[in-house]
Design a protein around this nucleic acid. Structure first.
Lengths: 142, 142
DNA sequence: ATTGTTTTTAGAATCATTCTAAAATGGCTT
DNA sequence: AAGCCATTTTAGAATGATTCTAAAAACAAT
């Protein structure tokens, strides 16, 4: 597990991603990477940081999430039309999506085995395989 | 393959879905179901119908796509944040998504085997398993 | 300090989608 | 065919997530 707890870890992580360790990037990185694995939307992260008492603009949250994603620190996740989640767990794994509550949960990559794949066209490379197990939680959230 | 070619097939199909066979629903159904399998967005279907000379409002296209989806005639597909595709192939299968060109292609369901699944929480039911194989087509679309 | 580059920001702009309330249509019944 | 009521369609406004823009702030290097 790649988990950064100390301030130095965080600074290192951001710098290694080729990004200047600015106040806002560090604060966001701390929120993202110093707990367990998380699935967050931009809005969530934004209000979370406001709640913690440091203000970032929403635009910066979006910028940072994308920068972290292209740097390989995050993985973008498309489960719901019109809402992007970002996953701090970048190891091979899949997802359980509770449609009613909107909650996402990781499924260990080796819990799901993929058999033979179709032949790909010339020159194409698989960039990722997403498996989403959509679940209806029948029990009402009482 | 469930393919409706004659006008009567189309009318039947819409009526069986519990929907009135109105002019716009029939026209849209014809576009959707009388060729091979398709993956369309609302915008695509809308401009396609305008191109064919019959006008539908975009709102009606959205309404109809959703009605067909809940009736089980279509399957909604989330591959790209902020854009919904609708798939006329409702049999068990998965998808190849060409990230660069935005093209979607079906993968026969039995080409991909899923191994053991994680235990689900009490009362939860799997509604669907989506597998998306994301492909970078390295060859430029010359 | 000065300069030049990178980042952040507020607010406007965009895009897909949904909503709204009104007009049109469809399917009865007579 | 005429009238009636429920269903559909529609144009346009509203929404919500995301991106863009141009200006201000922060940063790094001289």
């Amino acid at each position: 597990m790649r988990q950064a707890v100390t301030s130095n870890d965080i600074i290192e992580m951001v710098r290694d991603a080729g990004l200047r360790p600015t106040r806002q990037r560090l604060s966001l990185a701390r929120l993202l990477f110093s707990g367990g694995d998380r699935h967050v939307t931009a809005e969530q992260l934004h209000s979370e940081s406001l709640g913690q008492g440091f203000s970032v603009s929403l635009a910066t949250v979006y910028n940072t999430l994308h920068q972290f994603t292209t740097a390989g620190l995050l993985r973008e996740l498309v489960v719901d039309a019109g809402r992007s989640y970002f996953d701090t767990n970048i190891s091979a794994h899949h997802h359980l999506y509770f449609e009613d509550s909107g909650i996402l949960r990781d499924v260990a990559g080796d819990n799901v085995a993929i058999g033979e794949l179709p032949a790909l066209p010339e020159g194409a490379k698989i960039s990722r395989i997403d498996i989403i197990i959509r679940v209806k939680d029948c029990a009402p959230a009482a």
